[in-house]
């Protein structure tokens, strides 16, 4: 190809890419640079803004911040593991067990809750779980409980809400990865003398690993970055790190501290994912595919 014709063949590509690149640059990259710059500015005693890493040090100095982060991260990991434990059998049932003509129907059922916004889903849960809610009503009516009990506003309710919100993002990658698993591999393992447990451990899970990893990354990040569910369902004990960032920006007017927290969230969660990938021996390129 001559340089001229090569340039010509690239032109349509450039035309199509320009809006996306502009979008990325103007709305994502530039504001991030600005936030990054802001996160290194602090107000000194005379009220002037100076360069400093204090906003970052503050995170480690003040136990409430890193404890909240640790709590958030640990809960996000728990949510990820629980979501995986529930989603895996569901995905396996849909791809390998259910009659083929029901597959689409089941996938649709999974998708249904996501036709309404997260807020509506959470209010749905709240109507079910609250002390004067549907579940309590039936438990009392059937004589199982003497008094209605508060099922909302605790960590278990919050985790349940997060798992529910995350399900789809785990099931979809699992569906595609399990769909690509040749049934004969399972039969072959069975034929060679394995029992169900060994088949799951040595054939199905290794095959599904890229899907497990990508689903887990998405669920972990979504849970870590969630704001509504911990706040509304977790109630009074549910300080989530995102809320901490919100409070810095909105309640304390401290944008510099808030930006620093935002970047810490980005860096530490990336680190956690990196460690997770290393521990399970996965490559990011394969997982993203």
């Amino acid at each position: 190809m001559t340089p001229l014709s090569r340039a010509r063949s690239r032109l349509p590509l450039l035309i199509f890419l320009t809006p996306i690149l502009l979008w990325l640059l103007l709305l994502i990259v530039l504001p991030h640079f600005d936030l990054l710059r802001m996160s290194f500015r602090v107000e000194n005693n005379s009220g002037d803004m100076v360069w400093s890493a204090n906003n970052y040090l503050e995170f480690f100095r003040e136990p409430i911040y890193w404890l909240t982060f640790t709590r958030t991260a640990v809960y996000a990991v728990i949510v990820t593991v629980l979501t995986l434990c529930i989603a895996f059998p569901v995905a396996f049932y849909i791809t390998k067990v259910a009659p083929p003509r029901f597959k689409g129907f089941f996938s649709l059922l999974l998708l249904m809750p996501f036709w309404v916004s997260e807020l509506v889903r959470i209010y749905g849960w709240m109507i079910l779980l609250r002390e004067s809610g549907v579940i309590n009503h039936f438990l009392v009516a059937w004589g199982i409980l003497q008094q209605p009990v508060e099922l909302l506003y605790n960590d278990i309710a919050m985790i349940m809400g997060l798992v529910y919100t995350s399900m789809l993002f785990m099931v979809v990658p699992l569906l595609s990865v399990l769909d690509s698993l040749d049934d004969s591999l399972i039969e072959a393992a069975y034929d060679l003398g394995s029992n169900s447990a060994t088949i799951v451990r040595s054939i199905i899970i290794p095959h599904a690993m890229p899907g497990i990893a990508s689903g887990s990354i998405v669920v972990f990040m979504l849970s870590l970055g969630n704001y509504l569910t911990p706040n509304l369902m977790g109630g009074k004990n549910s300080l989530w790190f995102t809320e901490q960032i919100y409070n810095q920006f909105i309640a304390s007017f401290n944008w510099n501290q808030g930006s620093a927290f935002g970047f810490l969230l980005l860096v530490i969660s990336s680190l956690i994912i990196f460690i997770g990938l290393k521990l399970t021996n996965q490559q990011l390129s394969r997982v993203i595919r």
Partner: peptide
């Protein structure tokens, strides 16, 4: 005064985070 809201913010965070 401006500085007070930061003090209050931290206190409120502590309350929410406590168990």
């Amino acid at each position: 005064p401006a500085k007070l809201e930061e003090i209050e913010g931290k206190i409120l965070d502590k309350v929410k985070a406590s168990n």
